[in-house]
Design a binder for these strands. Structure first.
Lengths: 148, 148
DNA sequence: CCGGGCATATGGATTTGTTCTAAATTCTGG
DNA sequence: CCAGAATTTAGAACAAATCCATATGCCCGG
């Protein structure tokens, strides 16, 4: 059966509560974006979110997409991943993990958090706190390797 | 004594050889950029390089700054560090190390390579090779911490 | 139920780092 | 000295992200 327009198969109530749990007022637009983002763990660009959410008809403006993504990042609902000069990725998977980025096709892949063992910590300047530690593995297709 | 215009206190011959060792034809502009970049390990933006190199008089165009930085990255002379949506950093320190980025003042700091122990490696897709693994520690000033 | 006030949303213009383009300049080999 | 290739250049073009001024919606007091 076809999901209701813009629900992305995710219960509105559950999403609403999730937002509220993070201190976010669940407006129509925010709920819709959250429904899209959390339907499954994924890496999306702001533009991708904008396109997906407005696929059937205009529901959320570009400015609001950016505002909301920033808000979600700030409140720890999604992670911003900067690997590409062109665009930022937003990762709806909040569990501890790292990333693998292929420079040839700009594909971003998750790496389970336990694959790496990051131990020790750098000497921090005075009065700063660590927000997060991320590991990025950059790869490219091997020149003579398997066909793309 | 004042250094010759645009030499940045670095011997032209040594820099030239360094470029050639990396298969780069040492043109006037490339040597100048290299002299600036390698006078000391540093993190600079493309714009910063452009400004520094043209401080006294126009010597290198913006397009060439970008072309050259990309070339240097490609040939492993400098590292591109993507931590900020606003601008890319170029790191003239090529030794194994990681980075610490303060989101409040956009300051990028080196973290010695041995501070972290990154072990294990992710399952790679077929036919890809690892270009590099980087660890980025994001920090912010602690709200009630030392004055800024 | 009504109205004031504040947070939120919006479209469009703007900004800004980067890339592109087409032409000029500089090298290289013959 | 010439032809061809590589490099450099100025400025136009581009696109992601931000800004702005306005409109909308929501909550609360009366």
């Amino acid at each position: 059966m076809k999901a209701l327009s813009g629900s992305f198969g995710l219960d509105r109530r559950a999403v609403t509560e999730r937002l509220q749990a993070h201190g976010i007022k669940p407006t129509r637009q925010r709920v819709l974006l959250a429904q899209f983002l959390f339907q499954r763990p994924q890496h999306v660009t702001a533009d991708g979110v904008f396109a997906a959410v407005n696929a059937e008809r205009d529901l959320v403006s570009k400015a609001t997409v950016y505002n909301t993504l920033h808000l979600f990042v700030q409140q720890g609902l999604v992670r911003e991943v900067l690997v590409d000069r062109e665009r930022a990725f937003y990762d709806s998977n909040t569990s501890a993990h790292h990333h693998l980025f292929c420079e040839d096709d700009s594909q971003l892949t998750d790496v389970p958090g336990d694959v790496f063992e990051v131990r020790g910590s750098p000497q921090l300047p005075d009065g700063v706190e660590v927000i997060g530690t991320e590991v990025i593995v950059r790869v490219r297709r091997r020149p003579g390797g398997a066909a793309g």
